[in-house]
Design a protein around this nucleic acid. Structure first.
Lengths: 237, 237
DNA sequence: TTAGTAGGTTGGTCTAGTCCAATTCTGGCC
DNA sequence: GGCCAGAATTGGACTAGACCAACCTACTAA
């Protein structure tokens, strides 16, 4: 095999990054080289180039027109909200916050799980946390994690990312999630936990998280008082 | 060419539908035929089968494990919120509603466009509408559509889907959108238009819609009082 | 019984090539 | 100059085949 360095990235991904780097030097709507030219330039097949360009197209960096060519798309400032846990979301936006764990316990009997938004029919850990910055309350969150996927979770440090913990210590990677978003007024109980006035409007985010196999790992509910903090989504056809 | 019927669908899409139909008869986590078997069965290449299975995998119907096989994933009830206009969203959920156009006008001078959430620097049509069911107010919406993409839009019937109108009459297809979601309390002005009490909590959805080239066609703002109507999203890694 | 190894199966990745459809270019005709 | 038909170009779709990595199973040896 020789001393060649191992290829760290898949070819289409790697090539898409290389192309992307070059895009910034071009004007918007400017044409970029053809598939066949790029295939020769990178020494790969045309299908590989097509996959690389597909990545860039779906990310909104280029657009393509059969018969004419591939062009640079106008830039978009929005970083799209791909799958992140609540804490990853805050971290990536550069918000410094503190996590306070209010309660962790194993709920053995499923009928005791008091979710109104989804049903769990097996023992689960209940994790209740609050996120705050220096002065402002960010969110109140409750997660139910099925115990069979993370035995002993209540002994772990829970002030960081729950998803990272599930991945690193239990090999359970969250691959997808369903979210439901609605609005409500914060009631007495949560208002004291968040130190905000009762009656403050807030977003309520309910989430079901799944692993690659489609097993539901976690059910979570977050309440975020509306302090000009947005949830951002990028939606495609 | 003979009298053969024209293939209406692309092969991977068509095949994914055929496979999907068979999935319902299988138990969850049950293994389905291998790529090579399917390729022979459908008389196509393995790459085509892989594309079909990729569609099903991303839709959450199957999961795959290298070395072992492809399996039926547990069902998920959530229909994921792909790109729809506000009206399409309601229609697809089977909600009967009435659209009232409150105001349509061309704004020639960009500085008059009173958006606080985004800037438009060219003449645009302003469309203000309200959606209601028999008894309940659903949403209040304002759209700004750039005039150069839809000249004469103010003469069109605007009680239906704006996106369908843009597509059918102007060839402008909305391919992607950025959304920002926050919560607020409904103020006096909008409360009268929606016939709800001022102070009702609501979702505020701000949207920028783009065509395939990445041009921003529309900027919209919707306010939806929270009556147990959710925004549903399906998020993937 | 247990640990380990060898071989076959399955999905993951990439190549080289063909055919097609949409678009653009070009040259000739009026 | 303007228009039209055909050629060339470009992205889109698919094929047949190769090789690899993860996985599973069955057999073997300690």
């Amino acid at each position: 095999m020789g001393a060649l360095a191992k290829e760290e990235f898949l070819k289409p991904v790697r090539i898409s990054e290389l192309i992307r780097a070059d895009l910034s030097e071009l004007a918007i709507h400017e044409v970029i080289p053809t598939e066949r030219q790029m295939a020769e330039h990178f020494g790969v097949s045309r299908v590989t180039i097509q996959k690389a360009l597909k990545i860039l197209e779906r990310s909104g960096f280029i657009y393509r027109r059969q018969g004419s060519g591939t062009f640079v798309a106008p830039p978009r400032e929005t970083h799209n909200h791909s799958l992140r846990s609540f804490s990853e979301d805050l971290t990536l936006r550069g918000i410094e916050y503190k996590t306070t764990v209010l309660d962790v316990r194993l709920i053995e009997s499923p009928e005791m799980i008091d979710t109104t938004w989804a049903r769990i029919n097996e023992p689960s850990y209940r994790i209740e946390r609050v996120r705050t910055t220096k002065k402002v309350a960010l969110s109140w969150e409750v997660s139910y994690v099925k115990a069979r996927f993370a035995p002993g979770l209540d002994k772990e440090p829970l002030s960081g990312s729950l998803y990272k913990l599930l991945s690193d210590n239990y090999g359970q990677v969250v691959e997808s999630a369903d979210e439901e978003i609605s609005s409500l007024l914060i009631g007495d109980e949560i208002s004291t936990k968040l130190s905000v006035l009762a009656g403050t409007p807030a977003l309520e985010i309910q989430r079901r998280a799944f692993n690659k196999r489609g097993d539901c790992l976690e059910i979570a509910r977050a309440i975020r008082p509306s302090g000009r903090e947005f949830l951002k989504y990028s939606v495609r056809r």
